[in-house]
Design a protein around this nucleic acid. Structure first.
Lengths: 338, 338
DNA sequence: CTGTTAGCGCCTTCAT
DNA sequence: ATGAAGGCGCTAACAG
């Protein structure tokens, strides 16, 4: 059997309360007894039983990140960050897949909340797109931090990337390379990033005096298949043929590049392709994807630390944080030679 | 305040034990009282407090998968599987990044065990390569299921893919395409797959009567950079120039393809490249990677269900499961035209 | 078939 | 500065 607080108390010849005080770093313990207790702790290999602590404090010391598994997520980078945080803060971090409107996802979420398994949540798009999550957490007064939420609220802390600024930077990069017929692949309607990136694209066109051509904007998804299909549609139609494609995100860009290669259209010689997100693969895929660095790990890290702060300090005000993005130029974009 | 078992008992006019029985699906309750209890449960929105259950049963209902974050893991597919299992079995699944020999990783693992946070573990390579994990779990009698362990043991249940068979299949595929100078990129020394795949490669050469040329086998890593560097070394040296590269895994294959493209050597016209693992990206990367399907999700699923079985039924014998692999032909391999 | 009692390991409150 | 008693919500063991 593993040692309990009683064993330590007996060995150190103090009461269990004193041991508790030492373990939790409370005041009112002489250096002498503290040392004796710590020695006893080491000697029996004591560690507090988390379940007992959880029960008596009515906390789980566990937080949950809801993540949509449909994307080719930078999950391993996120895991790295969460490991560090969970180590430092002594919270366990559960990464929970969540599909909006999916019955099983909802039931799982409900059970996590009902059974007091989770102290606080972080949502990532598009998990916040349905009101279900927010309403549920609000009803049960479970703290929430949103990453790139669809709707921003004063009441809920959030961490967001600069989608509009990033999209502008990409569009201007392409314009500077001499491109005029720049296609934009619109993302899904349940993610704010889709709209913000479109706005950044449009704003840059206006700024540079290039007329907006709705034929060049095409509805797509933030997936390989979405980008592939959209690119084929554009590239097969002589009337729509662009000299550059700004895909809504990196995954769609991979699809666009694949389609282009498949059709014998070399990238970047005859078609420039830009992405958004700077996923790990983007520097590995030939010829290297020009993209906007929008570090998911960083957003997750900030949100997680923010949430833990809030859990520790109930009075914390909702914080709203904007993380800047930046252009990463690789070889998938080049001068317009047409 | 949320409802407790007492509230339900009061409302249903039974004892708390009866409520407990109903909740846990035990026998010896009349249909009548069961219905009354269930009605009360619904009426007050009761769900058992997990922490209390954990404390009294001295179980955490949580299992942990140790995963090395250095690879470009198919993490999202794994998350999908674990969601389903955790939903069905009512276990939470914690995916914990783990670097062998890394102090922080070890401390985190120790604290998970000491504090009774985890009922059982699953290891993935190369987390099992150091004895630390196995020894620790053995000392504390924490159940373990290994995925592709470095050393297989009768005492420890494991789930493994068919590395040798897969490597043979790939090698024979290349030989059938007319390749004779087939280079093999060896994986890291702390993973058994590296050796097994090498053996499969060698066995097929022997079988087809092709002499083994040590110059064509090169030490590498299971990473993009490893494959990139190895490919450059091979392709820059006229004496070593192969007509096909069998990379140790898909990530290394991505690197080899990138290097080849960079040097103006078209794939598959002048160089065939084969991988191993069939990661999601492998069908998205141009020209589509020929590889061995070795479904990580499936291994994880089997191992996880196995572990939960073991936790539920202490007498379960260690199980040893071999999952077959199969060749996936895409466009990165083609006939030897040299 | 149902209920009573005890206790899991810890923290909180209130004494001392 | 330290300790004693009580209870968090639940289940196990035993009665009835």
């Amino acid at each position: 059997m593993t040692a309990t607080i009683k064993d330590v108390a007996r060995l150190a010849e103090v009461s269990i309360k004193t041991v508790s005080r030492v373990i939790n770093g409370e005041a009112h313990v002489t250096e002498d007894t503290r040392a004796r207790v710590l020695a006893a702790v080491r000697s029996v290999g004591y560690a507090p039983n988390i379940s007992a602590r959880r029960l008596v404090q009515n906390k789980s010391y566990m937080i949950c990140i809801l993540m949509y598994p449909g994307f080719y997520q930078p999950a391993s980078a996120i895991l790295n960050i969460t490991m560090d945080i969970s180590y430092e803060e002594n919270y366990d971090i559960l990464i929970q897949p969540y599909f909006p409107s999916h019955a099983r996802s909802r039931e799982k979420l409900v059970s996590l909340i009902y059974e007091h398994r989770i102290d606080g949540f972080i949502t990532t798009p598009p998990c916040d797109a349905e009101d279900f999550v927010g309403d549920l957490l609000n009803t049960y007064k479970v703290p929430l931090v949103q990453i790139n939420p669809f709707n921003r609220s004063d009441q809920i802390p959030f961490v967001v990337g600069d989608d509009q600024g990033g999209a502008s930077a990409m569009t201007e990069h392409l314009i500077q390379l001499g491109h005029r017929r720049i296609s934009f692949l619109m993302g899904p309607r349940n993610m704010r990033a889709s709209y913000d990136r479109l706005e950044g694209y449009q704003a840059s066109l206006v700024k540079c005096g290039i007329p907006y051509d709705p034929n060049l904007v095409i509805d797509s998804e933030f997936t390989f298949d979405g980008g592939y299909t959209a690119a084929r549609i554009l590239l097969e139609d002589p009337n729509r043929m662009p000299s550059a494609i700004f895909a809504g995100n990196d995954e769609a860009a991979y699809g666009a590049i694949f389609a282009s290669q498949e059709m014998g259209i070399p990238v970047p010689e005859r078609l420039s392709v830009g992405g958004f997100d700077n996923l790990t693969m983007s520097k590995y895929i030939w010829p290297g994807l020009t993209t906007i660095h929008q570090p998911a790990e960083e957003l997750v890290e900030i949100a997680t630390r923010q949430l833990i702060q809030q859990l520790k300090n109930h009075s914390a005000m909702p914080t709203q944080i904007l993380v800047p993005s930046r252009l990463i130029v690789r070889r998938s974009t080049g001068p317009n030679l047409s």
